[in-house]
Nucleic acid binder design. Structure first.
Lengths: 216, 216, 216, 216
DNA sequence: AATGAATGAGAATTCATTCAT
DNA sequence: AATGAATGAATTCTCATTCAT
């Protein structure tokens, strides 16, 4: 009836125990169904993970691509991309974590498929940084390291951001945009008046406080 | 005869497949001993992981503390700490990854013990950032986020740094120190002539290219 | 589908090889199912033993209590109790043996629970002997020893009685009642016409010649 | 240096946990030596059990035979045999228990060898009962049952007799002789003045309160 | 759509035993 | 005489998955 329910239960458990340490029976219990019923929604435990990863990565690519379409100005693109990345990660922290951590749980075929989507996403950052450097809006000792640091930083949001925490999502996004500009020596003045922040999507796989309950 | 050999085999496998997905038999095969013999070196699979984590975290704390003793100047302390963190992570990338990823595999008791060591390490960063802000050497919109971004960035080194890569370790360290200074708006001129980089320790648990071989 | 089938296989093997020396795989083979399927019927090997013991001890208590309700006359109660004990033991020799021998295989919790049931059963004998001595129907140098000898004697039936043997169950029961009366110097004349023998229950856990087959 | 020390440790553990549930390492720990050293005293775990059983059964046969040589009078022989049986069992309760319970742990060869010794011992009882009945000193409904009951009763002493208990060994022996006479309707007057009780032997394998200590 | 029963493969761990020292 | 290290076989139990109902 509801693949989302199973995905949310899976993400909740995969994020806290890890894919390999989560049993099909635990998944069933967390989703409120018999473990055998899970096979009505998915072909295998790995397929379930893949379906979660695929929709997450595709949403990330979509969100990042949309960010780049916001403007032709590298600095605004950077801001939009960082804001989107942070927004997405903060909105879907558990799913993001599963995508980040569990690539290694996949078989070679699935692993390759997911890795190429992740590469596609990372290339968005590479494009922006490269263009900004080329037109002289950014400067950096090492473009690759700057890009990796940028992404890693943003991904780290999944480890600590809480919707009901000290900072609003918008504040967090602005702070990260600022840090990104500092790292690339970009001129923040170019961002004045540019509406580069979009509402991030909530994935069907992301557990919300009341959507599932952890078993004892 | 050699716990280190077992630890290196374990780190190699834990880092690539994950703790839960690694079997005792695989560990034995990778270490070149019978799986039962592993129980001469350690009490259980979890104990093995704990021994790896413990020595890694204690080495990190030691290395970070030594960095703070380098100088009383917050900016130099920051540089020394970041350089030490990056150096340690780049020198022991697999062990670092295991420590980062596998906390969740521990039982409650061990998890708490390891978490408190990690907290102790993170507090070193918090101390430096806080003092630098207090005395006006640093500035940041949000101290906590800056600190977290700093650490996350450095930890990310484990994901891509290779000793035989494009950049030397010293170059990487300098780049990260630069980025850290930018994020905290610290004055890099204060670092001129300060020898804040130390030789990072190589853990007994860190597999080196020739120390073990992956089974088929 | 049938816990009894598993219990019978278990009793057959536990009685002949002992609990500790019986493997789960042997149990499965004897019951005609996969060893993993055993865990559908029971939580663990020890749980299986406990379930066998519990129902045996409770049937013994029930049977003994019923014997005491036969009459208010100590001599008749004694006869009824001894006959019930011997009848039960001869009808369920293997289960009785397992209950007698394998208490030590239990963990502390289960051991205590089973021991208290055994104590309850033994107290039935103590009550009868004590009352018979008090009202002067019995006489003995030492009540405790007489009671223990009585029970031990009856339990020994499990070691040699065979339904198709030289003696019928009723003959065995009468002989034992006679010996009991002799030991306690009770007047057998009081038993004339008293119908103190009841049909003993056959436990679900007792293997019958055709209910299971021993593996090779 | 001392096979007895190993045997005592073994009997202590075999009696409480059972042969199959006792590990060689536990044996070593209880005997205060390394588990490998046990193989200097014995060929295997089963050999150790056999050596314990053999000396016990041979001592029983010797003690029983000596009892029969006490007199030509069946009633005195019976008394001497029962007293010897009870005395031996009470003096070596743990070894007796191991001999009684662990026959099933032996391989076919050893099992046969021990069983024939046990049969030899039991035949002593059969001889006495048979002769007593033949010459008219005893009477019983069923000779076989009487003999079995007699032995079982005496063996049961191992389950409850404690040297520091309520009754002295001599009292226990007299009580059992009395019960035996009652069961076989033998004339106790024939025992007057007959010194049929001998000091039972203490086996090298019998643990004494201070000879070994149970591990935690 | 849903499930209880079933299973072969594999998990971590312990075993009795051997052997070089 | 004694032992620490080592191991192949066996242990109990869990796994993901299938299938008849």
């Amino acid at each position: 009836m509801d693949l989302g329910k199973v995905q949310r239960a899976a993400v909740l458990l995969f994020a806290s125990r890890g894919f390999a340490a989560t049993g099909i029976r635990e998944l069933g219990a967390a989703a409120g169904i018999n473990s055998a019923t899970i096979y009505h929604y998915t072909g295998s435990k790995e397929d379930l993970l893949v379906s979660i990863m695929r929709s997450c990565l595709e949403a990330m690519i979509e969100s990042g691509s949309a960010a780049l379409r916001t403007s032709a100005e590298p600095t605004i693109q950077l801001a939009a991309l960082v804001a989107a990345h942070v927004g997405f990660t903060a909105t879907n922290p558990l799913t993001s974590r599963v995508v980040e951590y569990e690539m290694r749980a996949l078989g070679p075929e699935n692993c390759h498929a997911m890795q190429s989507r992740r590469d596609e996403y990372e290339s968005l950052f590479a494009q922006v940084v490269e263009r900004g450097l080329r037109v002289g809006d950014f400067s950096s000792d090492d473009a690759t390291m700057a890009r990796l640091a940028l992404m890693e930083m943003g991904t780290g949001v999944a480890h600590w951001y809480r919707p009901d925490g000290r900072l609003t999502l918008t504040e967090v996004q602005h702070n990260f945009v600022n840090m990104a500009c500092k790292i690339l020596s970009a001129d923040r003045a170019l961002l004045d008046g540019a509406g580069y922040i979009r509402q991030p999507a909530l994935l069907a796989s992301e557990p919300t406080p009341n959507s599932t309950s952890l078993p004892a």
